[in-house]
Design a protein around this nucleic acid. Sequence first.
DNA 1: GCTCAGAAAAGCGCGATATC
DNA 2: GATATCGCGCTTTTCTGAGC
Length: 493
Amino acid sequence: MQRAWQHTLGHKDELKSGTAATVIELEDVPPGALFSEPFAQNIAQKARSKLTVKQLYDDIDWPHVRGIGAATILRIWLKYVPSLSPHRAAVEVLFTVKHNKHRLRLRKSKIHTLRATNIDESTTVGAASVLRNLLAQLFITPVSLVNWMFMLYGDQLTIDRIRKIIRYTAKCDTPHEQHKWALPIIQLWHMKWAWQKAIFRLHWHSDLAKGTFGLHHDIVLIEREKFERLRSFDSTSFRFIAAPARLAKKKAVKNNSCSAARTEFSNGDQALVTLCNFMRVTLWYMELCASIAEGDIGRSFEVIKLLRFSFWGAGSTNYGNELLELACNSLYEFSEDLKTAVLNNYLANLSGRIGHWLELDLLQEHFNFWIKRLFNAKSHDFDGQHLAEAVGLNIAGISKLRETFPGLFGLKRNGQRHTDASTIHDINQLGNHFRKIMYSNTKAAETNHMTTGGQSVAADEPEPVLSADPGFPAAPVTVSKGILDVGEFITGG
DNA sequence: GCTCAGAAAAGCGCGATATC
DNA sequence: GATATCGCGCTTTTCTGAGC
C-alpha cells in the first residue's frame, strides 16, 4: 500500500473544495421591499462617505445594553440559585417584553437544499460560478432579475467574494451582469466563533498563567492546560532568539504606545478595567447567543452594533470591515421595508418551537456535515451525480430519516443533545480563588496601596513602568476615542 | 533622523486530515 | 488531542531604501 507521505507524480495530496447551498422561502416581506431601484439610488448618492465614529457610537442603544446585561446576570443567578426560581417568570418578561426589539414570528421555516457542486467559492471567479449555478438550478432567468434583489446569506468569506464580484462587474452592461440583484448579508454563526476567538485573544495574557487573572490563568487553575489556545496566541519564541536587536527596537516603540493606551483607559487600576471589560463582552456574547435562539433578531443587532468596534480592536479586520458595510447599509442604503425583510428572514426555525431558532450558516454547516458523513468516498467529486442529486437534494430528509429510523424498528431513539459535564467543582475553584484575590485587594486598599499586576505599590510612589510584554492588554475592546474612565467603562456609557 | 513609496511579509477566512 | 498544512485572494502591517 502506498502511504500518503510517499509523494510521487501520480500520487499526491489534493485539497477538494465544493459548495452546497440551501434555499429558504422568505416570509413576512413587505410588498416591494426587494425592488432593487431604491437601493441602487441610495448607493449612488454615496451618503455612506459621511459616516463617522460618533454616529456608530450614538447608534448603540446604551440603556438597552445596560438593561439586557442586568437581565442576563439575573438569568445566571436563577440557573445557579434554586431558591430564586419563583422569580423566573418575571425575569423572562424582561427579555420578552421590556427589552424586546424585533422578535420573529414563530413559524416552521420552509427549506430546500440544492445540488452540491465542486466549485471552489473561495476565489472570486469561483463565487461568481456558484451564483450562476444557483440561478440555473432555480430556473431564474436574467430578465427576471432586472428589477429585483436576491438575498444571499453566507459566512464572511462568501460574502466578501460576492462583494468583490459586485465591485469588479460594476461597469458591465446590464443589471444582471453587474450583479445588482445580489444582496450579500453576513450570517452570525461563524461570526460568533470569530468573536469568541477575539475575546480569548484579548484576555488570554500568556505571561500570567501563575498570576492573578486572565483566561490563561483561569485555565491553569482548573487544570485544563490542554485547551487549544486558538493558534497564534503566544508570541513566537524564535523571534526572541533570532532577532534580539530588532525586538529591542520594537519593544521601545510598543512600550510607548502601550503605556499611553493604558493611562487613557483607566485612572489607575487597569486590571479592574480589563476585568470589567471581559465581563461585559462575555455578557454581550451570551446575549447574542440567547437572542438568536429566542428569535429576537433586534436584540442580536443591538449586540452587533457593539461588535462594529470590537472586531477592529481585536484585529479581526475582515469582520470589522463587513460590519461597517452592514452599518452603511442599515444607516443609509436600506429602505425601512428592506430592513424589515432582511431582519424577518435572518434566522431559521426547523421545528417551529420556541427557542429553537438558528443561524442560516449553522443550518448549512449541519447539511454539509451530513453530506460528507453519508457520502465519504474520497475518490468522488462533490458534483458527481449521486452526491449532487441523490444526496445533496435530499439531505434534509435523509438527516431527518436518520432520527426517526431507529424508532421504526423499536430501537431506543438517541437524544438530541449531549449531557453537559458538571462544572460545579471548577466554578467553586475559581470562586474560591477570586474571593481570596478580592480579600487581599481590599486589605491592600485599606492600607492605601495600589495593586498592579499582582504587586503592591505605595500610592505616593510614581506609577511603575509596565514592561513591553503584554501582561495586561494594551486596550480594552470597545471604546470610543479612548477617553472613557473606569466609571463610564463599567456602566457602559 | 525623518518622510515617503514600493516591496515583502503577515494576517485573515474556510475545513479536512496527516502526523506527532 | 493538538496542530501544521493544504490553496487562494485579498487587506493590512512591516520592512527597506531613496532622498532630503
